[in-house]
Design a protein around this nucleic acid. Structure first.
Lengths: 355, 355
DNA sequence: TTGTACGCGTTATCAA
DNA sequence: TTGATAACGCGTACAA
């Protein structure tokens, strides 16, 4: 038995035909009015009656039915981890900016975490979309890029520091970024450089940043010097650095796994009486806006967030418009933005505490 | 003419019936297998054949069709401005946390900006959902809460500092928060208190925070003292404060429109040689995490982000489960978190500059 | 345990 | 300019 309008007292949503009945016309004509297409001629009077009837009933076209017949939703999904991170929030902002003027609608889903919880994409897949852009999502790579992966015919573009060669992607070359950072540090005369990373980040202690750091050091005959912190919070970073100062000497420079860590390191050192940029240079990674407004602005490896989003959208559109189009690929190079935290000869400063 | 599978060379997605044919069974049985319901009995052998056929074809159930027949998507939309803001990113994080363990899927849309651009919700409405939670979205209030508003039968809950009495909402009582902040400042002996706000924020210069600030001052016979800045960036705030120092005296306390402004104000003052918490007290608003890790941790009006999200979800669920259920309403009080920026007798500190 | 048949609310085609 | 009518792909009542 089906729930029918008005039968059980629960009012369900009005449909095209309800409007048609009230307007004294047919369902197809109602559809035409709401199709919002200029090229379909409708008598002014008919249209007015339909608009009025729809208003009275509170009619809204059912997007699900529409999508079913058209085979398109006009929506692209952006899969990104929604756990708080300034970097990701800024990437999301870039995606919003890029997709704003487009015809496509944007919908954001929190994919990775959901997968680890459910061991499936069932929830994420519930919103039907024309294509998917996934940012730094290892999980979706596993799902899409493997042979016999899920939803093989859904247009998919991976974006960020990890990707699979099997499909379209817009990568970020963290190796190149790290190389530039290390070169800069050596060129500005730093010899002892440490890599600062929370110890729990298995992946990042062995990823491209760590690798390039190590080989850059070894190339120059400098000792590899990794400082592991307990967490990524200020307190953990401060205690790791304080401990280091107690046991031996601080390095001349810190290469930090990301900007969050770099910012905390800068503050921690300042509060320990160390002059950032003078006694110790700091380099971060990602290029979040906050690096610019620190007491001592931080040198950082700036990711090309907006360019990355724009390309990913372009690639996805190509796939959507022609599912048999070849995959497109590109790896973007970050730009080293040099600021006072690594600039020689900056004026000395001191810790900032409460008044 | 309809695009048919295999006819034009463009392979379209396989359907239930394709799988059924390959598995030598019927479409409904395929549906049953993919319904993932435990209570439907299926012969082990049949199921195996279907799974295998689906794998071969790369079959994924069409969510659009599924939603059309079931009348449910299992998705809730979260409408929030995606322009970068640490506060909103933290609210989003809270929503993710709350919805994580739930059965519902979360989809995030960038509503307000889209509306100002398109003057319609057409894009936002393309993803069909069971209900909508809107955060600090004046636009969606106009659309939903007005008589004869759009989509009157879609479950809708507004959340945040603005709401409409017409529908379910979870509000935040900024008046109460501001009152607590002002009380605290007066109780700790501050007499001259200025309100710091970017001048372009029309709304916020006349919203609840501004109003309560003014009446609190007037009640105590203290002069209202609004400091307008050109923008919300550090430079604008610094120049407004420097200008003030030049012309007259700094107030004993700054009540800032939000934490972003408060953080910038703290840094600006420090760099001008003012001791935050000693020479000038600072209070922010929103309770973003960053207030805690400033050189001088900031007192702030902490929004109950997670409680707010949890309630909004609860209210929405109620509406979804029973569309005729009464609207539910609640206004949450923020909590004043007192930190060193307003604590008397904190140790003096100085500006932190580059080394 | 499985198959048949209908309906979900649209869009698009075709005839009027 | 408008009205029937056939898909769209799936869920499910009912019959087998």
């Amino acid at each position: 038995m089906r729930r029918r309008r008005g039968q059980s007292g629960k009012p369900s949503k009005p449909t095209r035909n309800d409007v048609a009945k009230l307007a004294g016309t047919s369902g197809s004509t109602v559809s035409r009015v709401f199709s919002a297409r200029e090229d379909i001629p409708i008598a002014t009077e008919t249209r007015a009656k339909i608009i009025e009837a729809a208003r009275q009933l509170g009619y809204v076209p059912n997007q699900t039915a529409r999508a079913l017949t058209k085979g398109r939703t006009g929506v692209v999904a952006f899969w990104i981890c929604l756990e708080y991170s300034r970097y990701r929030a800024q990437v999301l902002d870039a995606m919003r900016t890029v997709l704003g003027p487009s015809k496509m609608a944007l919908t954001v889903a929190n994919v990775d975490e959901e997968y680890w919880r459910d061991h499936s994409f069932s929830r994420t897949f519930r919103t039907s979309v024309d294509g998917i852009i996934a940012f730094d999502s290892s999980v979706s790579l596993i799902a899409f890029a493997n042979p016999g992966g899920i939803a093989p015919r859904t247009p998919f573009v991976s974006m960020g520091a990890i990707w699979s060669e099997a499909l379209s992607y817009v990568g970020i070359d963290l190796r190149a970024g790290t190389e530039a950072a290390m070169r800069h540090l050596f060129e500005t005369g730093r010899r002892s450089i440490a890599f600062l990373v929370p110890g729990s980040w298995q992946l990042d202690a062995s990823g491209p940043r760590a690798e390039v750091y190590r080989s850059a050091m070894m190339e120059r005959g400098a000792p590899v010097d990794t400082i592991l912190t307990d967490g990524s919070d200020l307190a953990s970073i401060k205690s790791a650095l304080a401990e280091r100062m107690r046991r031996s000497r601080l390095p001349e420079a810190l290469f930090c796994i990301n900007d969050d860590v770099a910012i905390s390191a800068g503050r921690a050192l300042a509060s320990l009486g160390v002059r950032v940029g003078h006694d110790v240079a700091i380099v971060g990674c990602d290029g979040i806006r906050e690096t610019e407004e620190e007491a001592c602005p931080l040198t950082t490896i700036q990711q090309p967030m907006e360019a990355m989003c724009a390309l990913a959208v372009e690639y996805l559109k190509a796939q959507i418009d022609d599912p048999s189009a070849p995959f497109r690929r590109c790896v973007l190079k970050p730009e080293l933005v040099v600021r006072d935290s690594t600039r020689l000869g900056a004026r000395p400063g001191t810790a900032s505490r409460c008044g």
